[in-house]
C-alpha cells in the first residue's frame, strides 16, 4: 500500500517545466480564435495538466492498484455526471413533445 519508491527530483522538475510550458500554451491559444475548437482546446490542455498533477505530484503513479482504482472511479463518476446531463442538452428538440 505504501509508495514503492519516491520519484526522483528530476521527474518533478520535468513535470513542473511541462506544466509551465502548458500554461504558456494556454495563454498563446487564448489569443487566437479557433472557432468552435476554442473550448475543446482549452479543456484538452487543462485535462492534460490536471492528469500530470494527479499522476506525479499526487503520487498516484507510485500507489497501489486499489488507490488507482479509487482515483479512476472518481473521474468515471464525473463522466457519468457530464454524459447524462449532456444526454438532455444534446437531445433537446430531437423528439417532439407530444401535442406540440
Amino acid at each position: 500500500m505504501t509508495e514503492h519508491a519516491e520519484s526522483p527530483i528530476g521527474t518533478y522538475l520535468a513535470v513542473f517545466v511541462t506544466l509551465l510550458v502548458m500554461t504558456a500554451l494556454t495563454t498563446w491559444v487564448a489569443f487566437h480564435d479557433w472557432g468552435a475548437l476554442n473550448t475543446p482546446i482549452a479543456l484538452a490542455i487543462a485535462v492534460f495538466k490536471g492528469s500530470l498533477v494527479v499522476w506525479f505530484f499526487m503520487h498516484v503513479r507510485y500507489s497501489a492498484r486499489l488507490t488507482q482504482i479509487v482515483v479512476v472511479s472518481g473521474f468515471f463518476w464525473l463522466l457519468i455526471l457530464f454524459s447524462f446531463t449532456l444526454s438532455d442538452y444534446l437531445s433537446r428538440g430531437m423528439l417532439p413533445f407530444p401535442g406540440k
Binding site: 463518476w77 457519468i80 447524462f84 444526454s87 438532455d88 442538452y89 437531445s91 433537446r92 428538440g93 430531437m94 423528439l95 417532439p96 413533445f97
Partner: peptide
C-alpha cells in the same frame, strides 16, 4: 442510483429522449 436522477425532472423541459432514458 446514480443513473436515474432525471426522473425528478420529467416536467422541467428536460428533453424527451433524456426523459425516456431516465
Amino acid at each position: 442510483g446514480f443513473l436515474v436522477w432525471g426522473h425528478h425532472m420529467f416536467v422541467s423541459s428536460q428533453s424527451v429522449y433524456a426523459g425516456l432514458v431516465f
